[in-house]
């Protein structure tokens, strides 16, 4: 199994109406690898990771996650979603449930875990993201940074093998970005397979094994952080880096 890649995309395309969001994307992510995806707005980064757990259905190409190919097969999809956790830009916590209930719900409903065990699991991961004290509050009572850490804990409660992050810090006030990134660094250091769409270049440089640069629905360049930042090969990558590092 060690040789099976965690995620394998081959020639993946996706269009919304007339807009081509993805155009023949090839990408292989190894077990335990941390990949950061960046690129200008509208380049297809979010669509790419949303295809990996089939929140978007791809039109063409193949997506294989942990050896399971995504198709119309519902059982395969269930299997993939159990193994792939996702964190969203807008947190998407369930507002009518407490923090702990947010964490415990999916293990109970999807894995059939008993309530007590699911809540113990929830507390374990709330501890990990360092907010066990907020377990009985409702999401609206927390700061943005805390909410995003709850969202990470909620995804971890399913004990996934892969975590997808879709611009997890873009909706946060600047002073809260650090606490969320710290949590993600901890995860990365524990060997979680991660794909992270982000513009946090310092984070990318620190944790990424590889950086994928996308533009207009295509993968333009894939490189290790050192090469990516010091010696980008493609003109568009250079332009993008110039713009983003100038700030």
């Amino acid at each position: 199994m060690a040789d099976t890649p965690a995620i394998e995309l081959t020639g993946v395309s996706k269009s919304f109406g007339g807009f081509q969001a993805l155009l023949g994307v090839d990408l292989t992510v190894a077990e335990g690898e941390r990949v950061v995806v960046c690129g200008p707005s509208g380049s297809g980064k979010s669509t790419l990771i949303r295809c990996i757990n089939r929140l978007e259905e791809h039109d063409a190409g193949r997506i294989v996650v942990e050896g399971v190919e995504l198709s119309d097969d519902v059982d395969a999809l269930d299997e993939v979603r159990r193994e792939v956790g996702m964190v969203f830009q807008s947190f998407n916590l369930f507002p009518h449930l407490t923090v702990l209930q947010n964490c415990a719900l999916a293990p109970m409903r999807v894995r059939g875990t008993k309530r007590a065990a699911a809540e113990a699991l929830g507390m374990k991961y709330l501890d990990k993201v360092q907010i066990p004290g907020e377990a009985h509050k409702f999401p609206d009572q927390l700061s943005g940074g805390q909410q995003q850490r709850v969202a990470i804990a909620r995804a971890l409660c399913m004990e996934p093998r892969i975590m997808l992050f879709d611009e997890p810090t873009s909706a946060l006030d600047p002073e809260m970005i650090g606490e969320v990134l710290d949590t993600m660094v901890t995860l990365a250091e524990e060997g979680m397979t991660m794909i992270c769409v982000t513009h946090e270049m310092a984070f990318a440089r620190r944790v990424a094994d590889r950086i994928v640069f996308m533009a207009d629905g295509e993968v333009v360049e894939i490189a290790d952080p050192e090469t990516f930042f010091t010696n980008p090969q493609n003109d568009r990558t250079r332009t993008f880096l110039d713009q983003i590092l100038k700030q």
Binding site: L55, D78, F94, A106, R109, V110, R154, A155
Partner: peptide, 21 residues
């Protein structure tokens, strides 16, 4: 918001669970 159902789907929750929970 559409993110609610997406978050539930991403957690692996099936249709009826998403509806009722």
């Amino acid at each position: 918001p559409s993110g609610q159902e997406e978050a539930a789907s991403a957690l692996g929750m099936k249709y009826w669970s998403r509806v009722f929970d």
